[in-house]
Design a protein around this nucleic acid. Structure first.
Lengths: 139, 139
DNA sequence: CCTAAGGTCTGTAGTTGCTACAGAGTCAAG
DNA sequence: CTTGACTCTGTAGCAACTACAGACCTTAGG
């Protein structure tokens, strides 16, 4: 049986984060000492490592909630796990594409700026006009 | 002079968002009708389009605040604008890299799963172990 | 003149996943 | 018995909105 500080070290989750997970019921409430200190066992460390790792991979806490629930039903087919993972991966892909298109536009905009004063700054100029605009004068 | 609904249509910003920008002082308070309705002019549409475009490119509202402040000082050199843009671009790059590494790990993990029951699910298995783990049995 | 529909107002709470206190209690060592 | 380290609860903050509730205003139609 360990206190939360030890669990924090072993799981990689901050103390406040562990308490937060308990508060949102991602973790069940633990046993307590007479003084009210939370008591943990090895099993909790495993759970927290699982959560920590899943967070590193970008899963939302809702995803993780589902994954943990599935994990506790070993006889089910693992399709649902794959589905969650696949969907998450697609979300990441979309975010990457979104960021890539932003980066491309930004580079384009930034490249058009050749120093000088703000009055002539092409970056600010580009921001003043609607999206399209691979340059070009507006009539 | 226009009311906020018209401004919303012309700028692409939601009504609530426009009010929000005013509340956080990204926009100066506008004139009002006797009944208290906000009144806008062409100039405000320009400002909101600027903000909207900058948001599309991922700039934070703090960045935008600075950009707008710079914009109003046309005699300054545009270095600061370039600096903000450059820094923002780097932030985007980092996020892309982070997402890419997550995606790669996720694909690796997902590929190792060959169906079956949750008890044997490799995805959940991989989440149970710390980061490294290009597979491999843990002794 | 009255009503109904649509626009607008303020203020507040919710979203996500934490993080950072304040203020109080607990515990072990010296 | 005091000091320091640890823990507790509860609350507020972050970013950038979004979504109400409940009230007020305006205008067109009957």
């Amino acid at each position: 049986m360990m206190l939360i500080g030890e669990v924090s070290k072993q799981s990689g989750c901050h103390i406040e984060t562990i308490r937060y997970y308990e508060r949102i019921a991602l973790l069940a409430p633990t046993a307590r000492t007479e003084a009210g200190y939370r008591l943990y066992r090895e099993q909790h460390i495993q759970q927290l490592r699982f959560i920590h790792r899943a967070r590193e991979l970008g899963f939302s806490l809702d995803d993780i909630r589902e994954l943990m629930s599935l994990k506790s039903q070993p006889q089910l087919p693992c399709q649902s796990v794959e589905a969650i993972t696949e969907k998450h991966l697609q979300g990441i892909q979309q975010r990457i594409e979104h960021l890539n298109s932003m980066a491309q536009e930004l580079r384009h905009v930034a490249a058009s700026c050749s120093g000088g004063d703000i009055a002539e700054c092409r970056i600010l100029g580009a921001l003043a006009n609607p999206a399209n605009a691979h340059d070009g004068n507006v009539p």
